[in-house]
Design a protein around this nucleic acid. Structure first.
Length: 559
RNA sequence: UGACCUAUGGUGUAAUGGUAACACAGCUGAUUUUGGUUCAGUCGUUCGAAGUUCGAAUCUUCGUAGGUCAACCA
């Protein structure tokens, strides 16, 4: 066991899918087979991460297998670019599929089964156009009416369907439908479409086919071909289950079963692919991997770790109830991980220069700083210190409120790991803005402890002004300020809910050693939050993304 | 005016006819060379009504509320 001890596993209660599986195992199901079936028409988001953790996690837990299956039945929307990104994201999350499958691999079998259904009198070619079919379907309260082509002979259907496949007919001129019940209370059972004609180039089968199976026809059979025991999908497919079962039973093939769980929703976040695509296309974000996006690549770029996303998926649970998870839970998960695993560094995002007047002009000394107080093995590092340092503008107030224990005139504060300093003089420009603080240090206080036992409550971070490197730092706020960005007034869209101030770019200063940091590394900048190197980072212009702030009870109190 | 799904603290999730609990969020305090971390404490919960039962969050019935379904999308 790598992540949990056995005891923890045993103490945890089962979710409803685990209960079903354990019950199936008890009743003789020998191997568990799941699958993750994305359509390669966009990038994966945190909602998919929940499904990935579920499907791959269940397979792992019960020593089964989990296939990755690209559900590529609609060539007009699917691209290889997406296939590659999906594979990358799943592996980044820490999972590996047993088999890489494509629904398009089964086009031949699916076609043969459609012919079989026709022969059984369970499918027919319909010449009605889209509008006629829609009208014939009725409504949720009014039964549909049979198509005039519903009673074609088997021979005629076979002939027509073969000619559909041969490309004899125009797009939209004919479809293959199942013959079920036009008055069924479940709209999906009113003679659903099995095949449509689409003279389109497919990213894998190229121009081999001009008829393509619909989702409902392809999905269950693909599960069946792969011997999937537990086909897990989201709640909106619940009404599809009778149809899923219908095909399997009429075809008399391996009985896969479908189970539905509630999809993930997060406050202040939009999750639909369509909306995320819109954000990208309208250039409201930098791309699919913008650190403000809920995409997996966005989270990765932001500095989220695979373990933190997995922990989140675990904490949100699995059930059938519609839910909205507080974005704060995701932030909690990444803080918890990074607190233990990210090394500390010092950086100043909004500097004021501090001149230590009684410190020798040309002296530089080395300060030893703890890399991670949560992990002694992380050791210490050397940080230069000299007469001029930068501190955070927030860490000085000329007229401090009560309980402010940072720097203010005549008050003493600790420069973390270095010295105690006292502010003697405030230098301002002609506009009254503080430009420099002239301080004196206590030479006896190296390391930060006074020699006479006097207590100094405040501790602030700093960087050596002569040796610090200037970098770009990107600070993110939530993309939407409303808890439910999808809820909009008449005439508005979720786009109107975008937070205009979700990105702040600042120039900050970092410890000199930090320039060696590489893409993929994340640090805690002490007292500020967790920061990850951005892919835009270059030798000339290093770029850091703030993954998440630290909890800050002072800021909260003084809001 | 259909069928199906769902209903437990602020948000999630458990309790499988027998003491309603866990996490996040909130609030108090302690510790702390990060106003971080950690620790201790605290707030607050079974949609409604009737029924079955010694006993109901759990079973039954009737309500109520929310969601899903009428693409040649998945």
């Amino acid at each position: 066991m790598n992540e949990h001890t056995l005891d923890q596993e045993e103490g945890k209660s089962l979710n409803f899918l685990e209960e079903i599986i354990e019950n199936d195992i008890k009743e003789g199901c020998r191997e568990i087979h799941t699958r993750f079936p994305p359509e390669p028409n966009g990038y994966l988001h945190i909602g998919h991460a929940k499904s990935i953790c579920l499907n791959f996690g269940l397979a792992k837990r019960y020593n089964g297998t989990c296939n990755l299956r690209f559900d590529d039945t609609n060539p007009t929307k699917e691209e290889t670019e997406y296939v590659d990104s999906i594979k990358e994201d799943i592996q980044w999350l820490g999972f590996m599929w047993s088999k890489e499958c494509y629904t398009s691999d089964y086009f031949g079998q699916l076609y043969a089964w459609a012919v079989l259904l026709i022969k059984k009198g369970l499918a027919y070619v319909d010449d009605q156009n889209q509008e006629e079919i829609r009208l014939g379907r009725g409504t949720v309260t009014v039964p549909g009416t049979n198509s005039p082509f519903r009673d074609r002979s088997v021979e005629e259907n076979l002939d027509l369907f073969a000619r559909m496949k041969e490309g004899e007919f125009e797009d939209g001129s004919k479809v293959l439908r199942a013959k079920i019940d036009m008055a069924h209370s479940n709209m999906l059972m009113r003679d659903p479409l099995l095949y449509r004609i689409l003279h389109a180039h497919h990213h894998r089968t190229a121009n081999q086919w001009c008829i393509y199976p619909m989702y409902d026809y392809a999905h269950g059979e693909s599960d069946s071909i792969e011997n999937i025991t537990h086909s897990i999908c989201t709640l909106e497919f619940d009404v599809h289950r009778p149809l899923y079962d219908w095909f399997i039973s009429k075809l008399e093939i391996y009985p896969s079963h479908q189970y539905e769980f509630a999809r993930l929703n997060i406050t202040n976040t939009v999750m639909s692919k369509r909306k995320l695509l819109q954000l990208v296309q309208q250039k409201l974000v930098m791309g699919w991997d913008d650190p403000r996006m809920p995409t997996i690549c966005g989270l990765r770029r932001r500095g989220y770790t695979p373990a933190s996303v997995r922990a989140f998926a675990d904490k949100v649970g699995v059930a059938k109830r519609d839910n909205v998870i507080d974005l704060g839970l995701l932030e909690f998960c990444v803080r918890e991980d990074l607190n233990h695993n990210a090394e500390r560094r010092m950086a100043v995002l909004d500097p004021i220069k501090v001149v230590i007047t009684n410190y020798p002009e040309d002296k530089t000394e080395i300060i030893h700083c703890v890399n991670n107080p949560e992990n002694e093995e992380a050791g210490k590092r050397e940080v230069p210190f000299s007469r001029e340092v930068y501190i955070e503008r927030d860490d000085f107030m000329e007229e401090p409120p009560k309980k402010y224990y940072r720097l203010s005139p005549c008050k003493e504060v600790r420069l973390r790991y270095a010295y105690l300093i006292r502010c003697d003089e405030v230098v301002k420009d002609s506009d009254g803005r503080v430009v420099e603080l002239r301080c004196s240090y206590d030479p006896q206080s190296l390391g930060g402890t006074s020699s006479d036992g006097r207590k100094v409550k405040g501790v602030i971070h700093w960087v050596d002004a002569t040796k610090a490197k200037e970098v770009e730092i990107r600070l993110f706020d939530r993309l939407f300020l409303q808890e439910s960005p999808d809820v909009v007034e008449e005439g508005k869209t979720f786009i109107d809910n975008i937070n205009p101030n979700s990105l702040h770019i600042v120039r900050g200063f970092i410890e000199p050693e930090l320039v060696k940091a590489k893409l993929g590394e994340t640090f805690q900048f002490e007292r500020l939050g967790y920061f990850a190197i951005d892919k835009d980072s270059t030798l000339e212009n290093m770029v850091f993304n703030r993954t998440v702030t630290l909890k800050d009870s002072w800021a909260k109190e003084n809001k």
